[in-house]
Design a protein around this nucleic acid. Structure first.
Lengths: 156, 156
DNA sequence: TATTAATACATGTATATACACTTAAATTAT
DNA sequence: ATAATTTAAGTGTATATACATGTATTAATA
C-alpha cells in the first residue's frame, strides 16, 4: 500500500478534535500505524513480519544465550504478542532453534541460528536505511519527542 | 492486563538504542500499544473492539447520512482495516444497519441505529474520562507533540 | 511430606491486519 | 454502442492480537 505523506487531518479526513490531547492520541496511533506499515514493506522482502523481527532482535540482544519465552514476551513492544506461536513460525523458517530448558522443565529456550543472524543483519541494515529516509526529526527533536511521550504516559 | 506506568527502557527492558530517533520510533510504537490497551479495557465493557469503535465514530461524524464502505475505510486510523467485516460484526450486534446504495449499485451504505447511537454516546463518555485520567500532557505539550509527530512523518 | 498455589508454556477462539483475488457495476475509450 | 478499464465491495488466507483455558512443573506452606 502506498502511503501518502499527509497531515493527520488529511489522513483521517477530520479536523474535529475534542482538544489537543485528543488529537495527540489519534496522532500517536496514526503515526505508529504509519511506521509499522513502512517497516513492513522492508521486512516483507525478507519474509518477516514486524513481530517476528522484534523477536529476532530480542534474541540478538542476548546472543548466544538461550532465551525462554517469558523473557522474550516481557521485552516485546506489544505485550499481548503470542510469543510461542511467533517462535513456531521462525522455527519453520529455520531462523531460530528451540530446545527444552536444562534448569526448568516448564521452559523452552530459543536461540538464533546462523541463518537467523544473517537475515537479521541484512534486514536491520535495510530498516536503518529506511528510518534515515523517512524519520524527519533531528536528534534534539527526537529527545523532545521522547520526553513528551514519557510525559503523556505519566512516567515523568 | 494491568499495565505498569513505566518508562520505555523498563517496558522493553532495553536501553541500547541506536540513537534518539530510533528510540523515538520504539517509543511511538509502545505508546500507541499502551493507549490502545487502555482504551480496549473501557470498550470491552461495551462489547466493542477498538476498530469497531472507530467505525461507529466515523458514522457518527456523518450521521444521519448513510456512508459507503470506502468513505469509512479512508477515515480509519489504520488504513488496512477490513471494513466490510467490521461492519458485519456491528450489524450482528444491531449497532448499525446496512443497505444498498441508491446511486451506485456497487456500494453498500451504513448508518448507526438508535442502539448504536446510545452505545457510542455511553462508551465515548467513558473513553473521554479515561483520557482525562491517563493522558498526562497539558494543552501546550499536546500541541508540541502534534508538531513533532507531523515533523517526524515529514508533513511539516 | 503431602497438599496447595503459582508459574511457564501450549492451545483454542474470536477478531483484526495485511494482502491477494473475485465479482459486479460504473466509467472511459475506441 | 461496444469493449476495455477502473472502481467498490466481498471473500479467502496467513499471521497477529487479545484473552481464556489446559497441562505439566516448580515453589510454597500446612
Amino acid at each position: 500500500m502506498y502511503i501518502c505523506i499527509v497531515k493527520l487531518e488529511q489522513a483521517i479526513k477530520s479536523n474535529k478534535f475534542k482538544n489537543d490531547m485528543h488529537k495527540a492520541s489519534l496522532n500517536i496511533l496514526y503515526t505508529a500505524w504509519w511506521l509499522k506499515t513502512q517497516m513492513s514493506g522492508v521486512l516483507k522482502e525478507f519474509g518477516l513480519t514486524h513481530e517476528q523481527y522484534n523477536v529476532l532482535r530480542i534474541l540478538k540482544g542476548k546472543y548466544p544465550e538461550q532465551v525462554c519465552v517469558k523473557d522474550i514476551s516481557c521485552r516485546m513492544i506489544e505485550k499481548s504478542s503470542n510469543v510461542p506461536r511467533i517462535i513456531d513460525r521462525l522455527v519453520v523458517k529455520k531462523l531460530v532453534k528451540r530446545a527444552d530448558s536444562p534448569v526448568d522443565k516448564r521452559e523452552t529456550v530459543t536461540t538464533l541460528t546462523q541463518a537467523g543472524l544473517a537475515v537479521l543483519a541484512a534486514s536491520t541494515e535495510n530498516i536503518n536505511q529506511l528510518m534515515n529516509e523517512i524519520v524527519k526529526v533531528d536528534a534534539s527533536e527526537a529527545i523532545q519527542l521522547n520526553f513528551l511521550l514519557e510525559r503523556l504516559r505519566g512516567t515523568i
